[in-house]
């Protein structure tokens, strides 16, 4: 397998992977996603408040992973579709996240296009389904 993530590691991240729970820094007020031990913006804040992110955002950048370029956990998906797009999304609350895009428009992905988070199977390992978020055109 490619970038192996153990079941305990994945499980600890369930709130962020399943429903985009971020954290607001107690020192500077900026929103971190995924959650950090120290705020990535002010490098000082260590206390945070959970915030439910909206799942809405815009495409900041994108690439298309062609069949042979897919890591092993995504190989089945690449074989089925030939290729699949991966995007960097700038969330409405500020943070940028990387994820796959589902149902990309036929005319192609455009920088700045609005997207929304959807709940999908990311991959399966050890017979355990890893659910998480992808983005679809909004």
């Amino acid at each position: 397998m490619g970038a192996h993530i153990s079941i305990p590691m994945y499980q600890r991240a369930v709130p962020q992977r399943y429903r985009l729970v971020g954290q607001r820094c107690g020192a500077c007020g900026k929103i971190n996603f995924p959650p950090k031990a120290v705020c990535k913006y002010c490098y000082q804040g260590t206390s945070f408040e959970d915030v439910q992110l909206s799942g809405r955002g815009t495409v900041y950048s994108y690439t298309v992973i062609a069949g042979g370029g897919a890591p092993p956990e995504f190989a089945a998906e690449a074989r089925c579709k030939g290729s699949y797009p991966v995007i960097i999304v700038e969330l409405a609350e500020g943070p940028r996240v990387i994820a796959q895009m589902v149902n990309p428009p036929e005319e192609g992905i455009a920088i700045g296009m609005p997207v929304k988070a959807v709940f999908r199977k990311i991959y399966e390992e050890e017979g355990v389904i890893r659910y998480g978020f992808k983005f679809s055109p909004a």
Binding site: Q100, V118, R120
Partner: peptide
Amino acid sequence: MDIDEDVITMAVA
């Protein structure tokens, strides 16, 4: 269903 969908992902939506 798409390859990354199952009844649980549809249920959540």
